[in-house]
């Protein structure tokens, strides 16, 4: 947080991963708490596999909707290389919650570019903390890849300036209105994401201990 008491959360990934939905739910949670909220994304032709970066800012009063480089409080990366691409947006020493999936674009398949050998190590080398887990695997174990964004929301839950329950409420509300049969699964995905993030934090401590 900064002088204006505004929280900056950057959620990144690629088109079709549900990045914008995740930020939308996060925004609803912040609104429910009475915050002023602005959300912006650059996703011009996102449906065709492009980069999506979704900025969420909330606090007593939000002016510019854009998070400036070096000022994000939290970076949530739905894809490993995207975590690396956007980590400069974090405040020094900031935290990245990262889905370990590697989604390789056609330009890499065609041999025009390389996929970074170890994106997580590179992010850490830049002085940021990374908590990494396989959100796709968790979602698949629950039976549906589309739960991936709820897993990611769960992972964020303990890093927000409000209780995890507020975020869970926003998820439940959204699904209760659209797909009531999905409420229970999403609840599970949320808890699984939360647990995965905690486990990743612990693993990190053991390594550094």
């Amino acid at each position: 947080m900064n002088e204006q008491n505004v929280t900056n959360i950057l959620v990144v990934g690629i088109g079709g991963q549900g990045v914008m939905t995740a930020t939308e739910i996060l925004a609803q949670a912040a609104i429910a708490l009475g915050h002023d909220v602005k959300k912006t994304e650059v996703a011009g032709m996102a449906q065709r596999g492009g980069v999506v970066s979704s900025h969420l800012r909330f606090g007593p009063k939000v002016l510019s909707p854009q998070i400036m480089p070096g000022t994000a409080d939290l970076l949530v990366a739905f894809e490993a290389a995207e975590g690396l691409r956007w980590c400069h947006m974090l405040k020094p020493g900031g935290l990245v919650l990262l889905n370990t999936a590697h989604l390789v674009p056609p330009v890499v398949d065609l041999g025009l570019y390389d996929y970074p050998a170890d994106p997580i190590a590179e992010i850490r080398a830049r002085g940021f903390e990374v908590r990494a887990f396989d959100a796709m695997k968790i979602a698949l174990e629950l039976g549906d890849v589309r739960l991936g964004n709820t897993v990611m929301l769960g992972a964020m839950a303990d890093h927000l300036p409000f209780p995890a329950e507020t975020l869970l409420d926003a998820i439940v509300k959204r699904f209760a209105a659209r797909k009531p049969q999905m409420v229970e699964l999403n609840r599970q995905a949320f808890e699984a994401g939360r647990a995965a993030e905690k486990a990743a934090a612990q693993a990190k401590e053991e390594v550094t201990a």
């Binding site: 690629i14 011009g44 032709m45 996102a46 065709r48 596999g49 492009g50 980069v51 480089p69 070096g70 290389a81 995207e82 690396l84 691409r85 956007w86 980590c87 400069h88 947006m89 020094p92 674009p105 056609p106 330009v107 890499v108 025009l112 570019y113 390389d114 996929y115 970074p116 590179e122 830049r126």
Partner: peptide, 13 residues
């Protein structure tokens, strides 16, 4: 201070 890491582009496909 914050310089972006050089990562392959993801042009729309």
């Amino acid at each position: 201070l914050a310089k972006p890491a050089p990562v392959f582009p993801r042009p729309p496909t």
